[in-house]
Amino acid sequence: MERLLDHDPHTGVKTWFSSSSEDGGTWNLRYEQDTSPILDQNKKAQARGFDKRSEMWHAARIPTVVMLEWKHRHGVEAWNPNHKAGVRRLLDDPEYRYLRVQHFMLGKH
């Protein structure tokens, strides 16, 4: 049986807890987030384009559940300065193009 353990109203992330007496008493955490508002904003920003003359460009909006996926699947912590190359690599990956706000490559992986 699964129960709601936590809800962050700022990010919308819900943390669900479940346990089982089978398999030696395992337990699981599952994270859930409605990512559609963030991804919709990204699509709109991609359609608008950007000023290439600017010194700084907004690259991406990354939902919290995607950051958790990156940590679990790729060992990349989005906010860790030592993982900057991994974040660039993932943002340049076509699998994660929906996170991008603009159409430019970050390069230098």
Rank of each mutant, 00 (worst) to 15 (best):
T15F: 06
K44T: 02
S20P: 09
R30M: 10
N80E: 08
S18E: 09
H72C: 07
G49N: 04
W16N: 10
P9L: 11
E69S: 13
T64R: 03
K43F: 05
H7F: 12
N80H: 04
L5Q: 15
T26W: 00
I62M: 14
D23E: 09
D23Q: 04
R30C: 10
A45C: 05
D51W: 06
T64I: 12
D8E: 06
D51C: 03
P37N: 02
F50I: 11
W27K: 00
F17E: 12
A59V: 07
L5H: 15
N80F: 00
R48T: 03
T11G: 14
A45Y: 12
A85R: 02
A60E: 02
G24M: 03
S18L: 00
A60L: 01
A47H: 12
V65A: 03
D8A: 05
G24D: 06
M67A: 14
S19R: 11
N28M: 05
Q33L: 04
I62H: 11
E22R: 04
N42K: 03
I38A: 09
G12W: 09
S18H: 03
K71I: 01
Q41E: 15
P81F: 02
V65N: 00
H7I: 01
D8C: 11
T64F: 08
D6Q: 07
R61W: 13
Q41F: 13
T26N: 00
L29K: 10
W79N: 12
S54M: 14
M67D: 06
H10N: 08
N82Y: 04
A85L: 05
G12A: 06
W70N: 13
R48V: 04
G24F: 08
S18W: 01
M67E: 14
H74D: 14
F50Y: 15
G75I: 01
N42Y: 06
S19E: 15
R30A: 14
L39Y: 06
W79D: 13
N80D: 14
S21H: 13
I62D: 10
S36F: 01
K14E: 14
N82E: 10
L39E: 06
D8G: 05
E55K: 15
G25C: 00
H58D: 09
R3M: 08
D51H: 04
Q46V: 00
G24W: 06
V66W: 07
T35A: 11
D6C: 03
M56F: 13
K52A: 13
E22D: 07
Q33H: 01
P9N: 07
G75L: 05
W16Q: 09
P81E: 08
W70K: 12
A47N: 09
K84S: 12
V76M: 14
K43V: 02
E77I: 05
I62Y: 10
S21F: 10
N82P: 01
L4M: 07
K43W: 05
T15R: 12
S18M: 04
D51E: 03
K71A: 11
R61T: 05
H72A: 12
T11S: 15
T15K: 07
N28S: 07
V66Y: 08
D51R: 02
L29S: 09
E55Q: 13
S36N: 08
S18R: 08
H74N: 10
W16M: 09
G24H: 11
K84Y: 07
S54I: 07
G24T: 10
D8H: 09
A47Y: 13
E32L: 13
Q46F: 04
W16T: 15
M67W: 02
L29G: 04
H58L: 06
H58V: 00
T11Y: 15
V76A: 15
F50M: 06
S20L: 02
T35S: 07
